[in-house]
Design a protein around this nucleic acid. Structure first.
Lengths: 126, 126
DNA sequence: TCTATTGTGCTAGTTCACTAGAACAATCTG
DNA sequence: CAGATTGTTCTAGTGAACTAGCACAATAGA
């Protein structure tokens, strides 16, 4: 089961945050086809956002073919994301964790790491 | 000089994107105290956002003590971010680039990498 | 069949990001 | 000094995100 946490004040609309968390969970293998997403009312209760906002997020995921809403029973994962096999992910995760540890011991804060990652991903232009 | 690029449709407000890019440039050493930010009118011309929006971004940076606006001459960097020395950054960047190359050759897309980084940074909690 | 649970639809209203356009004020440059 | 350049302020308006509250529809389970 996935637990949503919506950060108001992050600037990003709540419905986008929800959709993003689902996609992320799909990429990391936390969610797989057949799994059920939290109930709309559940999300309302835990995250404090409005039912319409949750519905908007779920509807976009459905349009993307990632989930399927079944009235009366819930919303279920039907599609998948992530272009790598979950087994291939583990060694990469381990190496990354080692790098992060090294970066942190060099004094980098998470924001520094974030900036560095974005720089490298974007081709390190400049 | 920093070049801004505002992505409408990303959901994130333009003024936040601008501020974020400045902070990122500060962390990566692209911007240093004394440097001048692009003119408000410059940003308007290149990014298409309204002058008030740019001003809002600059004003927040000024409130954070990172820049100083001097009427008639421009907006200048006064503070610094980034907790690591720029020299320490290079080896880390190289190692990260190697890891990214490996991840990509394993079939990971940038979004997968992003999700993995966020997972590791957040402690890998589930 | 009855009841709880789930997704869905609707209307009305508020807040905030953003636009548009104009004018003013301080500083630099020649 | 004169003109260009810069940041700054103001008003008015639009649209999207979000809230609030309620009613309805379909499914699951006792």
């Amino acid at each position: 089961m996935v637990e949503f946490h919506v950060d108001r004040g992050s600037g990003l609309p709540a419905y986008l945050q929800l959709g993003r968390q689902v996609r992320e969970a799909l990429r990391l293998g936390w969610l797989q086809p057949g799994d059920r997403l939290p109930t709309v009312r559940d999300v309302v209760a835990t995250s404090g956002v409005n039912a319409n906002t949750v519905l908007k997020a779920y509807r976009e995921l459905e349009l993307a073919g990632l989930v399927e809403a079944r009235q009366g029973s819930g919303t279920f994962v039907t599609g998948s994301l992530g272009s790598a096999a979950p087994e291939d992910l583990d060694p990469l995760r381990a190496k990354l964790a080692a790098w992060v540890a090294e970066a942190r011991s060099a004094g980098l804060e998470d924001e520094d790491i974030d900036a560095l990652v974005r720089e490298v991903l974007s081709g390190g232009a400049r």
